[in-house]
Amino acid sequence: MTLSPRARLALRLFTGLGLGAIYVPLVVVLINSFNVSQTFGWPPTGLTLRWWAAVWDNPGARSAVLTSARVGLAATGIALVLGTMTAFAVQRYRWFGREVVGFLVVLPIALPGIVTGIALNSAFAARGIPLGYLSVIVGHATFCIVVVHNNALARLRRMGTSLEEASADLGADIFQTFALVTFPQLWSALLAGGLLAFALSFDEVVVTTFTTPPGLQTLPLWIFDNLFRPNQAPVVNVVAAVLIVMSVVPIWVSQRLSGEPTTGGRM
């Protein structure tokens, strides 16, 4: 349709305002991380780098980052294996249960996190499995599978099967075909999926709340724990600022790898 210049301008302004509203709160957190004042107050009374240095020496924040990284890596590893398997099962075979598998994979992220969290919590309790690294990793892997699955599925669809058939025709066994033909075409999608799964795990609060024992803190749990402690506000501000800056990484890398800006299969 031909839009009048006025309508175009209005749309442009509206979009600008919308993006402004998306970014203003994030910028406020960034600025606030340099705020001199110990308690929150806007506008900042002065700017300092003191809190950024303080975070570096904060043992709680450091160990929380480490915990999150460990959990994220393990969960991503499991999700990479399981998500790739489901993607092959759905994409490369015509059978009756394809939609069911697709549905099962999305379910952990489609149901409210609190439902998944409580369900896993009660299952661990019923089996007598103590909460610990294992339970958090199981919880995270469960909802990370979908991210890898969606990324791998999209790539498999685009790849087609002709190269694999050619490889088989030329005498390669199925392991050789996978290693020399399929995987080289697939790996970048898996890397993107893995990265996004890690980001998802790194950020998760709700399932984590129900699968961690007291004393084990991932970064989001540490943030939540310190959010309401007045004297911790400056440190929380800095951690928040770092996380905002870091959110560019998954987008940038996945755009590099797949050439498409991605939601990472979260939708």
């Binding site: 709160p25 957190v29 950020d203 989001p220 943030i223 928040a240 560019v248 987008i251 991605t262």
Partner: peptide
Amino acid sequence: AAVLTPLWASYLVKAYA
């Protein structure tokens, strides 16, 4: 990309913001 990036900023950080 500008719309997508905040999707990957931490949930807690956005609520906190």
